[in-house]
Amino acid sequence: MTLLQARDLRKRFGPVAALDDVSLSLRRREIVAIVGESGSGKSTLLNVLSGRIAPDSGTVLYDEGEGLSPIAGRGEARLRHLQRTRWGFVQQDPRQALRLSVTAGGNIGERLMVSGARHYGDIRATAARWLETVEIDPARLDDLPRTFSGGMLQRLQIAATLVTEPELVFMDEPTGGLDVSVQARILDLVRGLVRRLGLAVLLVTHDIGVARLLADRLVVMRHGRIVETGLTDQVLDDPHHEYTQLLVSSVLPA
Protein backbone atom coordinates (compact mmCIF):
# COMPACT_ATOMS: atom_id res chain seq x y z
CA MET A 1 0.00 0.00 0.00
CA THR A 2 1.66 3.20 -1.22
CA LEU A 3 2.21 5.75 1.51
CA LEU A 4 4.22 8.42 -0.33
CA GLN A 5 4.62 9.00 -4.02
CA ALA A 6 6.56 11.44 -6.17
CA ARG A 7 5.66 12.09 -9.81
CA ASP A 8 7.88 13.79 -12.37
CA LEU A 9 9.69 16.08 -9.96
CA ARG A 10 11.86 18.82 -11.40
CA LYS A 11 13.94 21.38 -9.49
CA ARG A 12 16.64 23.71 -10.73
CA PHE A 13 19.04 25.84 -8.75
CA GLY A 14 20.23 28.34 -11.32
CA PRO A 15 21.70 26.40 -14.26
CA VAL A 16 21.93 23.17 -12.25
CA ALA A 17 19.17 20.55 -12.56
CA ALA A 18 19.03 19.16 -9.01
CA LEU A 19 16.02 17.02 -9.85
CA ASP A 20 15.35 16.00 -13.42
CA ASP A 21 12.11 14.10 -13.87
CA VAL A 22 12.19 12.02 -10.67
CA SER A 23 9.43 9.63 -9.70
CA LEU A 24 9.31 7.09 -6.90
CA SER A 25 7.01 5.38 -4.40
CA LEU A 26 7.29 4.34 -0.78
CA ARG A 27 5.09 1.74 0.86
CA ARG A 28 4.04 1.50 4.51
CA ARG A 29 6.76 0.01 6.73
CA GLU A 30 9.20 0.07 3.84
CA ILE A 31 12.76 1.38 4.18
CA VAL A 32 14.13 2.98 1.04
CA ALA A 33 17.65 4.36 0.74
CA ILE A 34 18.52 7.01 -1.82
CA VAL A 35 22.22 6.75 -2.64
CA GLY A 36 24.52 8.79 -4.79
CA GLU A 37 27.56 11.00 -4.60
CA SER A 38 27.50 14.67 -3.50
CA GLY A 39 25.61 16.75 -6.00
CA SER A 40 23.47 13.84 -7.17
CA GLY A 41 20.31 15.58 -5.97
CA LYS A 42 19.51 13.16 -3.19
CA SER A 43 19.23 15.76 -0.41
CA THR A 44 17.11 17.98 -2.63
CA LEU A 45 14.84 15.01 -3.29
CA LEU A 46 14.47 14.41 0.44
CA ASN A 47 13.65 18.07 1.08
CA VAL A 48 11.03 18.09 -1.68
CA LEU A 49 9.45 14.82 -0.54
CA SER A 50 9.23 16.07 3.05
CA GLY A 51 7.63 19.32 1.98
CA ARG A 52 10.52 21.51 3.07
CA ILE A 53 11.03 22.95 -0.40
CA ALA A 54 8.65 23.09 -3.33
CA PRO A 55 9.54 21.51 -6.68
CA ASP A 56 9.46 23.61 -9.85
CA SER A 57 7.06 21.05 -11.31
CA GLY A 58 5.71 17.61 -10.47
CA THR A 59 3.76 16.41 -7.42
CA VAL A 60 4.32 14.75 -4.09
CA LEU A 61 1.37 12.72 -2.80
CA TYR A 62 0.73 11.26 0.61
CA ASP A 63 -1.93 8.88 1.94
CA GLU A 64 -3.31 10.00 5.30
CA GLY A 65 -5.86 7.20 5.25
CA GLU A 66 -8.11 8.38 2.43
CA GLY A 67 -5.96 7.63 -0.58
CA LEU A 68 -3.08 9.56 -2.09
CA SER A 69 -3.45 13.33 -2.30
CA PRO A 70 -0.95 16.09 -3.08
CA ILE A 71 0.78 17.58 -0.06
CA ALA A 72 0.97 20.97 -1.75
CA GLY A 73 -2.80 21.30 -1.83
CA ARG A 74 -3.25 21.10 1.91
CA GLY A 75 -2.04 24.53 2.89
CA GLU A 76 0.96 25.34 4.99
CA ALA A 77 -0.72 24.82 8.36
CA ARG A 78 -1.80 21.28 7.56
CA LEU A 79 1.56 20.41 6.05
CA ARG A 80 3.30 21.77 9.15
CA HIS A 81 0.98 19.68 11.32
CA LEU A 82 1.83 16.59 9.32
CA GLN A 83 5.54 17.29 9.67
CA ARG A 84 5.23 17.73 13.43
CA THR A 85 3.06 14.72 14.19
CA ARG A 86 2.92 11.92 11.62
CA TRP A 87 6.25 12.59 9.95
CA GLY A 88 9.73 12.86 11.38
CA PHE A 89 12.95 14.28 9.99
CA VAL A 90 16.34 13.26 11.32
CA GLN A 91 18.98 15.75 10.22
CA GLN A 92 22.61 15.04 9.59
CA ASP A 93 23.73 17.59 12.16
CA PRO A 94 21.76 17.10 15.37
CA ARG A 95 22.83 20.55 16.56
CA GLN A 96 20.57 22.04 13.90
CA ALA A 97 17.58 20.02 15.01
CA LEU A 98 17.90 20.12 18.79
CA ARG A 99 17.49 23.08 21.14
CA LEU A 100 20.92 23.21 22.73
CA SER A 101 19.89 25.33 25.70
CA VAL A 102 16.94 23.09 26.51
CA THR A 103 17.35 19.93 28.60
CA ALA A 104 17.35 16.48 27.00
CA GLY A 105 13.91 15.91 28.50
CA GLY A 106 12.61 19.17 27.08
CA ASN A 107 13.90 18.28 23.64
CA ILE A 108 12.23 14.88 23.65
CA GLY A 109 9.08 16.26 25.23
CA GLU A 110 8.57 18.94 22.59
CA ARG A 111 6.85 16.78 20.01
CA LEU A 112 4.68 15.32 22.73
CA MET A 113 3.68 18.78 23.92
CA VAL A 114 3.01 19.92 20.37
CA SER A 115 0.67 16.94 20.00
CA GLY A 116 -1.22 18.01 23.10
CA ALA A 117 0.54 16.29 26.03
CA ARG A 118 -0.20 18.33 29.18
CA HIS A 119 1.02 16.21 32.07
CA TYR A 120 4.53 17.15 33.15
CA GLY A 121 5.15 13.91 35.01
CA ASP A 122 4.02 11.75 32.09
CA ILE A 123 6.08 13.72 29.59
CA ARG A 124 9.09 13.32 31.81
CA ALA A 125 8.56 9.60 32.25
CA THR A 126 8.15 9.09 28.51
CA ALA A 127 11.28 11.09 27.82
CA ALA A 128 13.25 9.07 30.37
CA ARG A 129 12.09 5.81 28.76
CA TRP A 130 13.16 7.06 25.37
CA LEU A 131 16.59 8.01 26.66
CA GLU A 132 16.97 4.40 27.76
CA THR A 133 15.73 3.17 24.40
CA VAL A 134 18.43 5.14 22.60
CA GLU A 135 20.99 4.00 25.14
CA ILE A 136 21.53 7.30 26.94
CA ASP A 137 21.60 7.17 30.75
CA PRO A 138 18.17 8.44 31.89
CA ALA A 139 19.96 10.30 34.69
CA ARG A 140 20.87 12.80 31.98
CA LEU A 141 17.27 13.81 31.49
CA ASP A 142 17.89 17.29 32.90
CA ASP A 143 21.27 17.80 31.26
CA LEU A 144 21.80 20.27 28.44
CA PRO A 145 22.74 18.79 25.06
CA ARG A 146 25.85 20.93 24.88
CA THR A 147 27.38 18.45 27.33
CA PHE A 148 26.69 15.50 24.98
CA SER A 149 29.06 13.85 22.50
CA GLY A 150 28.27 13.79 18.76
CA GLY A 151 26.92 10.26 18.92
CA MET A 152 24.78 11.05 21.95
CA LEU A 153 23.37 14.12 20.24
CA GLN A 154 22.33 12.05 17.26
CA ARG A 155 20.70 9.48 19.51
CA LEU A 156 18.92 12.28 21.34
CA GLN A 157 17.65 13.61 18.02
CA ILE A 158 16.38 10.18 17.11
CA ALA A 159 14.54 9.91 20.43
CA ALA A 160 13.10 13.41 20.04
CA THR A 161 11.86 12.52 16.55
CA LEU A 162 10.47 9.04 17.15
CA VAL A 163 8.80 9.79 20.48
CA THR A 164 5.46 10.39 18.75
CA GLU A 165 5.89 7.23 16.66
CA PRO A 166 5.51 8.95 13.29
CA GLU A 167 4.52 6.64 10.45
CA LEU A 168 7.05 8.14 8.05
CA VAL A 169 10.59 9.23 8.87
CA PHE A 170 12.98 11.08 6.59
CA MET A 171 16.68 10.75 7.41
CA ASP A 172 19.44 12.82 5.89
CA GLU A 173 22.82 11.13 6.35
CA PRO A 174 21.92 10.12 9.93
CA THR A 175 25.40 8.88 10.71
CA GLY A 176 27.42 11.34 8.66
CA GLY A 177 30.27 12.93 10.57
CA LEU A 178 30.37 10.28 13.29
CA ASP A 179 33.14 7.81 14.14
CA VAL A 180 32.82 4.45 12.42
CA SER A 181 32.21 2.56 15.67
CA VAL A 182 29.64 5.10 16.79
CA GLN A 183 27.95 4.84 13.41
CA ALA A 184 27.56 1.10 13.72
CA ARG A 185 25.80 1.41 17.08
CA ILE A 186 23.43 4.04 15.83
CA LEU A 187 22.58 2.11 12.69
CA ASP A 188 21.82 -0.94 14.81
CA LEU A 189 19.61 1.18 17.02
CA VAL A 190 17.78 2.70 14.07
CA ARG A 191 17.24 -0.65 12.43
CA GLY A 192 15.80 -2.12 15.61
CA LEU A 193 13.51 0.83 16.30
CA VAL A 194 12.25 1.11 12.77
CA ARG A 195 11.32 -2.56 12.63
CA ARG A 196 9.74 -2.53 16.05
CA LEU A 197 7.63 0.58 15.41
CA GLY A 198 6.77 -0.41 11.85
CA LEU A 199 7.96 2.90 10.41
CA ALA A 200 8.35 3.76 6.77
CA VAL A 201 11.74 5.36 6.21
CA LEU A 202 13.21 7.38 3.37
CA LEU A 203 16.90 7.68 3.96
CA VAL A 204 19.59 9.55 2.07
CA THR A 205 23.18 8.42 2.24
CA HIS A 206 26.36 8.41 0.21
CA ASP A 207 27.47 5.34 2.16
CA ILE A 208 26.56 2.05 0.48
CA GLY A 209 27.27 0.20 3.71
CA VAL A 210 24.57 2.14 5.52
CA ALA A 211 22.13 1.40 2.73
CA ARG A 212 22.93 -2.28 2.75
CA LEU A 213 22.40 -2.49 6.51
CA LEU A 214 19.11 -0.63 6.72
CA ALA A 215 17.24 -0.55 3.44
CA ASP A 216 14.75 -2.88 1.79
CA ARG A 217 15.01 -0.99 -1.48
CA LEU A 218 17.66 1.17 -3.09
CA VAL A 219 17.31 4.15 -5.40
CA VAL A 220 20.52 5.27 -7.13
CA MET A 221 20.77 8.91 -8.20
CA ARG A 222 23.18 10.71 -10.44
CA HIS A 223 23.02 14.28 -11.75
CA GLY A 224 19.42 14.68 -10.63
CA ARG A 225 18.10 11.49 -12.21
CA ILE A 226 17.32 8.05 -10.90
CA VAL A 227 19.57 5.65 -12.78
CA GLU A 228 18.65 2.41 -11.06
CA THR A 229 16.21 1.10 -8.45
CA GLY A 230 15.38 -2.26 -6.93
CA LEU A 231 15.72 -4.51 -3.90
CA THR A 232 18.89 -3.65 -1.99
CA ASP A 233 20.56 -7.03 -2.23
CA GLN A 234 19.75 -7.38 -5.90
CA VAL A 235 21.07 -3.96 -6.82
CA LEU A 236 24.23 -4.31 -4.79
CA ASP A 237 25.01 -7.86 -5.86
CA ASP A 238 24.12 -7.36 -9.51
CA PRO A 239 24.21 -3.68 -10.45
CA HIS A 240 23.01 -3.00 -14.00
CA HIS A 241 23.80 0.67 -14.57
CA GLU A 242 27.49 1.47 -15.01
CA TYR A 243 27.29 4.22 -12.41
CA THR A 244 25.84 1.80 -9.84
CA GLN A 245 28.60 -0.61 -10.71
CA LEU A 246 31.12 2.13 -10.05
CA LEU A 247 29.53 3.00 -6.71
CA VAL A 248 29.41 -0.60 -5.57
CA SER A 249 32.91 -1.42 -6.67
CA SER A 250 34.39 1.64 -4.99
CA VAL A 251 33.23 0.61 -1.52
CA LEU A 252 36.19 -0.33 0.64
CA PRO A 253 35.91 -3.89 1.89
CA ALA A 254 34.71 -4.05 5.53
Binding site: E76, A77, V102, G106, N107, M113, V114, I123
Partner: peptide, 18 residues
Protein backbone atom coordinates in the same frame (compact mmCIF):
# COMPACT_ATOMS: atom_id res chain seq x y z
CA UNK B 1 1.32 32.35 15.30
CA UNK B 2 -0.05 31.79 11.82
CA UNK B 3 0.65 28.08 12.06
CA UNK B 4 -0.28 27.82 15.75
CA UNK B 5 3.26 26.54 16.22
CA UNK B 6 3.61 27.06 19.99
CA UNK B 7 5.80 24.10 20.90
CA UNK B 8 8.65 26.37 21.95
CA UNK B 9 6.48 28.04 24.60
CA UNK B 10 5.42 24.73 26.12
CA UNK B 11 9.03 23.65 26.17
CA UNK B 12 9.86 26.86 28.02
CA UNK B 13 7.33 26.06 30.73
CA UNK B 14 8.60 22.48 30.97
CA UNK B 15 12.12 23.85 31.46
CA UNK B 16 10.94 26.25 34.18
CA UNK B 17 9.45 23.38 36.17
CA UNK B 18 12.57 21.31 35.61
Amino acid sequence: HALADYGAMHVRLYEEIT
